[in-house]
């Protein structure tokens, strides 16, 4: 069993993940048995079970909204792949 090529392409698009043709084929083959393996969860009757998102009871921590120093712009921008003055430079969002 292989996964549909279209499913692989749709999911890769949602994740903004570039895949070449060989990688797509590999995903079709490798993901199918993994997704099959997940099927065993259907043996569990979870109709009355609440979901667990995280295991500690701490929720909605509040603190006073006070002004604190933040990192200097020059430091923050030091890792930027492309920059212009004190800004991150990005590529065009809309095509010309």
């Amino acid at each position: 069993m292989k996964l549909d090529l279209k499913v692989v392409e749709d999911v890769a698009h949602l994740a903004r993940l570039g895949l070449n043709e060989a990688e797509k084929e590999q995903m079709r083959e490798e993901l199918a048995p993994i997704l099959d393996y997940f099927e065993m969860l259907n043996e569990l009757d979870t109709s009355h079970i609440p979901p667990t998102a995280q295991v500690i009871s701490v929720q909605n921590l509040m603190r006073p909204d006070e002004v604190r120093p933040s990192a200097p712009a020059q430091e923050v921008l030091a890792n930027a792949p492309f920059r212009e003055d004190n800004y991150f430079r990005v590529r065009p969002i809309f095509e010309k």
């Binding site: 259907n42 979870t46 079970i49 979901p51």
Partner: peptide, 14 residues
């Protein structure tokens, strides 16, 4: 079918 189901299974495992 996957994510919520898994979170419920997580409750049972815990």
């Amino acid at each position: 079918a996957y994510y919520i189901k898994a979170q419920k299974a997580r409750t049972m495992i815990k």
